[in-house]
Design a binder for these strands. Structure first.
Lengths: 116, 116
DNA sequence: TTTTACGGTTCCCAAAGGGGTACTACGTTC
DNA sequence: GAACGTAGTACCCCTTTGGGAACCGTAAAA
């Protein structure tokens, strides 16, 4: 299912103690910013600075951290352009795109929950 | 949508800082045992001791905690029988049942993720 | 020569979440 | 009179997660 090394190095494979598929899914999208990142990247490839602008209420550090974990899980692809100043583009992998229907349903359910 | 007080006292309404429906959904099912509890209660109403047997790798305290939060969010219904020794039955509310399709998809996605 | 842009990393700290052990209530049974 | 069974609660601890502030490297621009 994976065509590169990402799956072998995936956090989720190193992580112990998940009991079913739901736990796995939560581990992948459960971080504070992960679902939002996946959501925005579904619309368009973004540079790191674009993401910073989009998530102005968090820090570079948190963004980097969440992106690295998503990358380790094979959800996003990180493309570095060897230039100065640096340019790094983030986009969804096939796996990253595959979770979008679930995110949409979670979004709808959550909105219904708070009564919109 | 709610026919009792649970919604007004819901944790999720007291909780600040969720940015979209996805955050709300994650807040409701994101606890370590919550999704599993919802999953099992979808099959059958269970007594507290049934849940203890089912989740033998956690403690009474954690179970109680997660159940109380799910109850506060209007996901499960707690029925106390006034007898000794105590008897308490947990079942899903309509709202609790409504999230089952999402849990099923999360389960399937997670299994696919780890490559089963 | 200093500043700017970009995409980070390091160190340290606070809050949240999860968990273990012991204690409780009380009617029934031994 | 002691033990049992159910469904908890109280107190304390540890780990994980999130976050803030400062620092870094390099080439081009001012």
């Amino acid at each position: 299912m994976s065509d590169n090394l990402a799956e072998d190095q995936s956090m989720i494979y190193r992580e112990k103690g998940y009991r079913c598929g739901i736990d796995v899914t939560l581990a992948v999208v459960g971080g504070k910013w992960k679902s939002s990142i996946l959501w925005h990247l579904a619309q368009e490839t973004m540079r790191f600075s674009d993401l910073q602008r989009q998530f102005s209420d968090t820090t570079r550090k948190m963004l980097t951290q969440q992106l690295r974990e998503l990358e380790a899980d094979g959800m996003v692809h990180r493309k570095v352009y060897p230039q100065v100043p640096p340019k790094v583009e983030y986009s969804l992998t096939e796996k990253g795109r595959s979770i979008h229907p679930i995110l949409e349903q979670m979004c709808a359910w959550g909105k219904a929950f708070v009564g919109e």
